[in-house]
Simulated assay, not measured.
Amino acid sequence: MAETPASDVLVRFSKIQKSYDGETLIVKDLNLDIRKGEFLTLLGPSGSGKTTSLMMLAGFETPTAGEIKLAGRSLNNVPPHKRDIGMVFQNYALFPHMTVAENLAFPLSVRKIPKHDIGERVKKALAMVQLDKFAARYPGQLSGGQQQRVALARALVFEPQLVLMDEPLGALDKQLREHMQMEIKHLHQRLGVTVVYVTHDQGEALTMSDRVAVFHQGEIQQIDAPAVLYEHPKNAFVANFIGENNRLTGELVSHDGDRCVVRLPRGETVEALAVNVGGPGQPVSLSIRPERIFLNGHSEACRNRFSGRVQEFIYLGDHVRIRMEVCGKPDFFIKQPIAELDPTLAVGDVVPLGWQTEHVRALDAVEHAE
């Protein structure tokens, strides 16, 4: 990872470890620089260490080893309310007996902001999330989306330099969730505040973030811009966790520069980009995105060309997923926009298909079958 200039770093995790029982490390040797003004998402499955890392930054958990710095000062002995950090949780954590305006005023009065400034700041924060007319209402009188907006305004009202969000949209339905993703993203762009966001939803992470850190078993597997993570995963875990992915397993035959040849179990060979491979004879997993596969005549120019049997069509409105049997693998998926689908294609058809060398990545063998 390229070193970020110190002046651009807002948060620095140095050699952070966390264990609850003194034996198992939930977070192992975490080194991470969070840049000023960026939207960084910590993404990973349950138990990968992403929420624990966020809670250590917030001050609700203490690192077992290592140091966290915010704007150059160590946070190790700073209590949560003195860290100048806004927090948004999934359950909103609003005070039910206080009006919306009182909920927003609370973090200001705790910070001893003068009374005449409080009203002005609350008004500004409510306008920011389009809730000006709701100041006198109680949380119980609001919808889930409105409550989430109040929680967001409350995290921003005291103008912190850093806002942490832990699965903040988890309780909302799909449409509202997608709408709120855009709202939070636009707020971030407008305010320039640094946001650290935790989710297990990869679509959300790709949509909202400047960078995404993929966690697995307490370690960051890769940290990159969303498009880089998706198109250029560095290992098999990231390839499988981000987006949909066809995985073929084989062994390395030869390796020349950035290209390699991999033999599949039934003897077919695939030419691939060598990203994370050992020596000849070593096991390899190949990763190919479903949208990068060409069918029928479109596959003629492809370096890797095979035939596949159509097993099933899965209709998704704007595109269709075609499940095929390819190279002995019964669940090989191809994604096609509806406009490009051949209407004569039917279940049971055997058709040519292919993909270019630059769209298949040779990665480490996956140890566990998923």
Score class of each variant (00 low, 15 high):
residue 2 A to S: 15
residue 5 P to V: 03
residue 11 V to I: 15
residue 14 S to L: 11
residue 22 G to V: 07
residue 26 I to D: 04
residue 26 I to Q: 11
residue 28 K to T: 08
residue 29 D to K: 11
residue 31 N to H: 09
residue 32 L to K: 05
residue 34 I to P: 13
residue 37 G to C: 08
residue 60 F to C: 01
residue 65 A to E: 14
residue 70 L to H: 12
residue 78 V to K: 03
residue 87 M to Q: 07
residue 88 V to L: 05
residue 93 A to E: 04
residue 94 L to Y: 00
residue 101 A to K: 03
residue 102 E to Q: 11
residue 108 L to N: 02
residue 109 S to D: 09
residue 118 I to V: 15
residue 121 R to V: 01
residue 129 V to A: 10
residue 129 V to T: 10
residue 131 L to F: 03
residue 135 A to E: 06
residue 137 R to Y: 00
residue 140 G to K: 02
residue 143 S to T: 11
residue 149 R to G: 00
residue 151 A to N: 02
residue 154 R to Q: 08
residue 156 L to A: 05
residue 157 V to E: 06
residue 160 P to Q: 00
residue 165 M to C: 13
residue 165 M to A: 12
residue 172 L to V: 08
residue 180 M to N: 06
residue 185 K to A: 13
residue 193 V to L: 09
residue 193 V to P: 09
residue 202 Q to S: 07
residue 207 T to K: 00
residue 217 Q to S: 14
residue 225 A to M: 13
residue 244 E to Y: 13
residue 255 H to Y: 02
residue 261 V to P: 02
residue 264 L to W: 06
residue 265 P to R: 11
residue 272 A to K: 02
residue 272 A to P: 05
residue 273 L to Y: 03
residue 278 G to Y: 04
residue 280 P to H: 06
residue 307 S to L: 09
residue 312 E to A: 08
residue 319 H to R: 15
residue 325 E to N: 10
residue 325 E to R: 13
residue 339 A to W: 10
residue 344 T to L: 14
residue 350 V to I: 12
residue 351 V to E: 02
residue 362 A to W: 01
residue 364 D to P: 11
residue 370 E to M: 12
